[in-house]
């Protein structure tokens, strides 16, 4: 039990540091990268919490979150890749 708690705390500190990069991040891509990393770390946190509380049901949520994380990242990148050059006139208004 003890070691799961230690690992969970380490992962939570990691999430805090990555969030700091998301807030500081000079460009859009730094923020997307930080968001993606937070997603992966959230999966780890879910798995660890499942072990800490002795409820393995959390692992199902973790599997689902892994898939959603990829789709979310790709969707955001697609949006920003497509959104800028499509209509340059509209951006001037």
């Amino acid at each position: 039990m003890m070691m799961f708690a230690v690992a969970t705390i380490a992962v939570l500190i990691t999430i805090a540091m990555v969030l700091a990069r998301a807030i500081l991040g000079p460009s859009l891509f730094d923020r997307v990268l930080a968001g993606n990393t937070v997603g992966s770390l959230a999966v780890l946190t879910l798995a660890l919490i499942g072990f800490v509380t002795g409820r393995p049901e959390f692992l199902d949520i973790a599997i689902l979150y892994t898939l959603l994380n990829l789709i979310g990242t790709i969707a955001v990148l697609r949006y920003f890749k497509m959104a800028q050059p499509v209509n340059p006139e509209q951006a001037k208004d």
């Binding site: 230690v6 690992a7 380490a10 992962v11 500190i13 990691t14 540091m17 990555v18 700091a20 990069r21 500081l24 930080a34 990393t37 770390l41 780890l44």
Partner: peptide, 12 residues
């Protein structure tokens, strides 16, 4: 956990 923390440090 150590590699996670190292990675976050590198990210910063």
């Amino acid at each position: 956990s150590a590699f996670c923390l190292i990675g976050a440090l590198g990210l910063l």
